[in-house]
Write a protein that binds this DNA or RNA. Structure first.
Lengths: 228, 228
DNA sequence: GTACAATATGACCGGTCAGTCATACCACCC
DNA sequence: GGGTGGTATGACTGACCGGTCATATTGTAC
């Protein structure tokens, strides 16, 4: 963790260091990120850096903490239409948060992407339950709840489906943002935060239709199912 | 491309260089791969390296070519049940090839994974048609054909669905192999190549059921749809 | 043998890297 | 003035990097 000296710094200086670090980590994986680049970008001496942080890893986890806070902010800023979201509304919300995060903080999203690639284990086994969990287990819990609530088909292999949702969540945001950027550049500019325009909503609807059709216990009859 | 000198080398020496390179590229992204590590692992002098290759990128694309050949081999080694596979059988085949490749050549799979992360564009726009294509466009063509054949629902956003299949293909293999390794270690050992055991087939069935339900025009009634 | 071309070699060069440390600076108190 | 503790600095070290090149070795033809 950063030293007491670092927290004694005037905020302006701290922010300069942090934004230099963010720029570096967003363009280089931790492995090839450079302390020299950060200090020169931040306008501080190299010796100062080592008075603030033990090493570059120390700074890295500090930045990860900042990212985590911002991510919670984004999730909580999304409109919550009802206290108890049904299963697929919840999923939509999660994916929407990922897109929102990508738009608002592309550097943070990039850092997270680098982090995902470096953590090479695709899944791990929970020592208590013996269950195989992907990522942080959010989707695993989501699917288990969904089955209990009769929203998710019982035959779905929860562990695998959780993994699939995990990688979709990780990969879909930059893609959707790229497409949104084409059709609705006004959204990208910043002010229009939570509410997406029609084009964007259509894209989201399509994604959710695919996911819901794939996972739901009682998928709605398809739009063109009998209307061919 | 490698020099004439390189191709004049005795095969044994060439293989030693290549396997050293493969080991290096499988554990480091190109950006941080080390010529020194390769030459010391291969037991050749640094000067020799630069008589064989222009630089490390040159060697890298040479290795990519080897990987590409092996991949075609794997795909063609899969049993082809019928000349004209229907849409979802074809998809299953593609995913199965990815798993097979991961088992047989994990280093190659790792190199490809590094390559995917480095190519940061999630999709590109075809200058001729104006269509947005993900990856090499295989899935895009697959989905388009599927719609023509009445196998894929017409409402599916082809570009987005292609992207999703792309990232599933890229991510699912290590995960499935991890799970296969638990239940059926005999498959991993090598000899049992194309035919998977029951556990593995069940996993695959589940994956295909999810994908088919999500994308198909006329998904089969779910196993538990009316039998609750 | 000699001559010539192909190949092999590792010391060396300029550069970047993370991390250190003696020194300097500065604010505050006496 | 002097003393003290916190902070800032950048030259320096040793290691590694990609790439070069003069020299040595080997193969081949005569």
């Amino acid at each position: 963790m950063p030293t007491k000296t670092y927290y004694n710094l005037p905020e302006e200086k701290r922010l300069k260091v942090e934004s230099a670090a963010i720029a570096e980590f967003a363009t280089n994986p931790l492995q090839s990120a450079s302390v020299n680049a950060i200090v020169s970008e931040a306008g501080i001496a190299k010796g100062s850096f080592y008075q603030y942080f033990e090493n570059i890893d120390d700074l890295y986890v500090h930045i990860l903490g900042i990212i985590y806070k911002k991510k919670l902010e984004v999730i909580n800023s999304l409109p919550l239409d009802s206290a108890n979201l049904d299963t697929f509304r919840y999923l939509r919300r999660v994916l929407q948060a990922a897109v929102e995060f990508q738009i608002k903080y592309p550097d943070f999203a990039s850092i997270e992407r680098f982090r995902r690639m470096n953590s090479n284990h695709s899944s791990s086994v929970d020592p208590e339950t013996g269950e195989r969990i992907s990522g942080d287990g959010r989707f695993h819990a989501f699917l288990t709840q969904g089955i209990l609530h009769d929203d998710i088909a019982t035959w779905v292999d929860v562990e695998m489906a959780a993994f699939i949702l995990e990688i979709i969540e990780g990969g879909i945001a930059p893609y959707l943002v790229e497409r949104i950027g084409e059709k609705a550049p006004d959204i990208m500019s910043g002010t229009l935060s939570a509410g997406y325009d029609r084009t964007t909503q259509d894209l989201f609807d399509n994604l959710m239709d695919i996911l819901e059709a794939g996972l739901a216990r009682d998928p709605q009859i398809r739009k063109d199912f009998y209307s061919k």
